[in-house]
Nucleic acid binder design. Structure first.
Lengths: 212, 212
DNA sequence: CCTACCGATCGGTAGG
DNA sequence: CCTACCGATCGGTAGG
């Protein structure tokens, strides 16, 4: 019985350490990128030695992949929740933008860069699929619905296809994220705005444009 | 005389080698980023040994900085030429987008990432200024003119300030660049479009939006 | 989960 | 412009 308790306790600690590593890896990898962060930096921030990481993950790439999958799943769940709501397309777009702006302390485009350029074929394929499922699919649904309702222009009406629309939308969001200072975003020089205001600017611009 | 000729010859060769290094560094750094490219890779692609680079540039960072300055000056000259033309704002915007799409084989955002995260304070400040002068200033003029003419909405009219406008515009261009395959750009799945078509899509979207 | 250590590669220097 | 080499750091392994 004492053995069983101790064993159970050991497993819980194991799980906890694994969770700590993932959390720390997420903060560092997302902020600085795959290549810029060493396994020793991650270990130190966890209060571990570097070889201890290899008890929990096969190698650096697998650690990155596990972190990215968790992150994408979390974002994906949130986006699906928003997209399912019974509100207007532009309101849901604003909510998506606001969510991405103040939860992802990282840049979406940094993760895409790492997936495309730093990982081997197999891991890349797996994470590309997770990105499609978590981010692209919910947003694609939203833009398709908008076109179906007649709120957004279809390509035949001089608009653009849902897939390209969503990537342009994401790139605008990333632009604000990479110019963020703390909790606020740079707008005009010297003037800072909140995530909610930034989300409104992005959605206003992509929906109605800059022209009069 | 023979000495003078030889000396002159030697200097010319020196300049040529320096030019080769800059050209090779531009292709590699712009495609893969500062950190991903080693000084040995650059030297090898030039047909040199790695220590030979240090005859032409003080260190890796200075090599990157020289390359980036040249690149920004070239882009800046082109953008200024376009902005000065006596054509409509939207036509000039299209020309700017087309120029950026098919001359820069790299991502503008990759250079910004390197400037912000891989270089020390002094180099970063210098290149940030070069970026402002070469890219931001000409585009800011264009957007300001558009607002002055009444073609673009001013912030008071529900539009956004020229500086934010230009960054959003650049992020849309970068989005297409990072999804480029060879000479063409991904649009709808399986359908590829030219730089000219991509430029039109970007400008159409940022000016008039996706809504009907 | 640790100590100790590996081979590879990095940016950069010495000396000619 | 080369050969030879430096110290630092990388991802990862051995062995307990």
């Amino acid at each position: 019985m004492s053995r069983a308790v101790r064993k159970h306790h050991g497993q819980a600690e194991n799980e906890e350490t694994r969770g700590t590593i993932l959390r720390v890896a997420q903060e560092l990898f997302m902020e600085y990128g795959y290549r810029a962060i060493s396994t020793r930096q991650i270990a130190e921030a966890c209060g571990l030695t570097q070889p201890a990481l290899y008890h929990h993950f096969a190698d650096k790439q697998q650690l990155y992949a596990a972190m990215a999958r968790e992150e994408l799943a979390k974002t994906g769940a949130a986006l699906e929740r928003i997209v399912k709501r019974k509100e207007s397309t532009d309101e849901r777009l604003r909510q998506v933008a606001r969510y991405l702006l103040h939860t992802t302390r990282h840049d979406q485009s940094q993760m895409l860069h790492d997936i495309r350029r730093e990982l081997d074929e197999e891991t890349r394929a797996s994470l590309t699929q997770a990105f499609q499922a978590g981010i692209v699919q919910p947003l694609c649904t939203l833009f398709k619905e908008g076109q179906g309702e007649g709120f957004l222009k279809t390509p035949a009406q001089g608009g653009i296809d849902p897939m390209t629309s969503l990537y342009l939308f994401l790139s605008m969001v990333s632009q604000f994220v990479s110019n963020r200072h703390g909790e606020h975003f740079a707008a005009v020089q010297g003037h800072e705005i909140s995530a909610t205001e930034a989300a409104s600017m992005i959605v206003q611009t992509i929906l109605y444009g800059l022209a009069r």
